[in-house]
């Protein structure tokens, strides 16, 4: 999902663990170049609802991305978010009836469904074109052009605020950098899925 803006780029190795030292997967890593302003480019993305789960369960988009919420289930969904980055509600719909939602502010957005309490999805709206997610080993790489960056991370269970994770990074040409975080985690709070035999998904 990383975007490559220019031909020359340097690689930043990212490593994230929880406070216990365990690798933290699927943490969002965003590098914001100093002086960078949000570009006004339009992107589109999609969060489907399949088998009463958001697919993908987590998505990182750049600010200004229009996200579609098609419904692949036979039942209707009512997708909502109370997140400060984007608060919205899609009234009950089926198929592709719902209007796409424009995510125009950076920050995490938690998705829910009013019909199915256990459905949960995350869209992280990044205010930078450089972002990535850690793999299962807690590793990720960012290919960034040389320059100064502020790098921060986000994870749904993270105790720390996003701001407190900010690290500055100066990247020289031909240089490499390594950056790492140790994050405290909140317990996962998952409402019970309705007893239909169908599995809950995501977080």
């Amino acid at each position: 999902m990383a975007l490559c803006a220019c031909a020359q780029a340097e690689t930043v190795s990212v490593s994230i663990t929880d406070t216990g030292g365990a690798a933290l997967a699927r943490a969002v890593v965003v590098a914001v170049a100093a002086g960078q302003t949000a570009s006004d480019h339009k992107h589109e993305a999609k969060v489907d609802q399949i088998d009463k789960s958001f697919v993908p369960g987590e998505l990182v988009v750049q600010v200004g991305t229009l996200v579609h919420f098609p419904n692949s289930d036979k039942v209707r969904h009512q997708v909502y978010s109370f997140s400060p980055a984007k608060s919205f509600e899609l009234p009950l719909y089926a198929g592709a009836e719902a209007e796409p939602v424009l995510f125009d502010k950076p920050g995490p957005v938690t998705l829910g469904c009013n019909i199915h309490d256990w459905m949960r999805g995350y869209i992280y709206v990044a205010d930078s074109p450089w972002f990535t997610r850690t793999d299962e080993q807690g590793h990720a790489t960012l290919d960034l052009p040389p320059g100064d960056y502020t790098v921060h991370v986000w994870h749904p269970q993270m105790r720390e605020t996003e701001d407190s994770t900010r690290q500055t990074l100066s990247l020289a040409a031909q240089g490499t950098a390594e950056i790492s975080w140790k994050l405290g985690l909140k317990p996962v709070f998952s409402p019970r899925r309705a007893p239909m035999g169908d599995a809950g998904g995501g977080y």
Binding site: S81, F82, S83, T110, G112, D117, R120, P156, F189
Partner: peptide, 9 residues
């Protein structure tokens, strides 16, 4: 009880 949106808020 927690207020869920759907994570506790």
């Amino acid at each position: 009880v927690p207020v869920l949106a759907p994570d506790p808020i």
